[in-house]
Design a binder for these strands. Structure first.
Length: 199
DNA sequence: TGCCCGATTAACT
DNA sequence: GTTAATCGGGCAA
């Protein structure tokens, strides 16, 4: 039985938590899979929602770590983040892609596609597949409907530039599982940068 | 109040 | 490769 991730896991730098999430299993109401792609957003980062201070939308980011920050993107999609670091630092990890392992039939129905590679490969897609919407903003990650399990063994993590942003776009704060077929986009070999190897 | 734009996706050519 | 869909946040006025 895999080990469930506790709140203290998120009480670290977002740049430590993000690569450590690669290979972990995310379930929401028993649906989900293995996390293969995330991005780190630090409050000193111009691309982070929290960069310009607390507002009604980003208030959860300014609370304690270990909670879900869910926001609407481009007026039509939902995106899921894990709040990290000590309370007030307003940093979070965006969950960008899963390798589906649980509840695939339900996720196929919700997404309207059969191809497993299109179920959870993208921040908006995985929220649609798992049924995550705005009302889940602020929920604790330690409690149902969330269940997050640490990876069992070492994995190969690659890092590169983030996707879909214009500010601080050069920062290599996107992390992925090397060679995964379930990434929202492949990592450009030329842009991959070294980082601390996972335990 | 009005305007611009975005941590996206899918359907095009 | 390009672009439409669609809407709340943030900021100027």
């Amino acid at each position: 039985m895999p080990k469930r991730i506790k709140r203290t896991f998120f009480s670290r730098s977002v740049h430590e938590v993000a690569p450590d999430l690669i290979g972990a299993t995310l379930l929401f109401a028993s649906l989900g899979g293995r996390i293969v792609e995330v991005e780190a957003y630090h409050h000193t980062d111009p691309a982070a929602h929290s960069f310009r201070g607390e507002t009604a939308r980003n208030a959860v980011m300014f609370g304690p770590p270990g909670y879900a920050y869910v926001y609407r993107s481009y007026g039509m999609h939902w995106c899921l983040n894990f709040v990290c670091e000590p309370k007030g630092s307003a940093s979070a990890v965006l969950i960008r892609a899963l390798e589906p392992t649980a509840g695939i039939a339900t996720m196929r129905r919700r997404r309207g596609v059969a191809d497993e590679r299109l179920l959870c490969s993208g921040p908006g897609r995985l929220c649609q597949a798992l049924g995550i919407i705005g009302k889940h903003n602020g929920l604790p990650l330690e409690e149902a409907p969330f269940a997050i399990f640490a990876r069992k063994g070492p994995v190969e993590v690659v890092a590169g530039p983030r996707i879909g942003i214009t500010k601080a776009a050069e920062k290599p704060w996107r992390y992925g599982l090397k060679g995964s077929r379930f990434l929202s986009k492949p990592f450009s070999p030329a842009a991959i940068v070294p980082h601390r190897p996972p335990r």
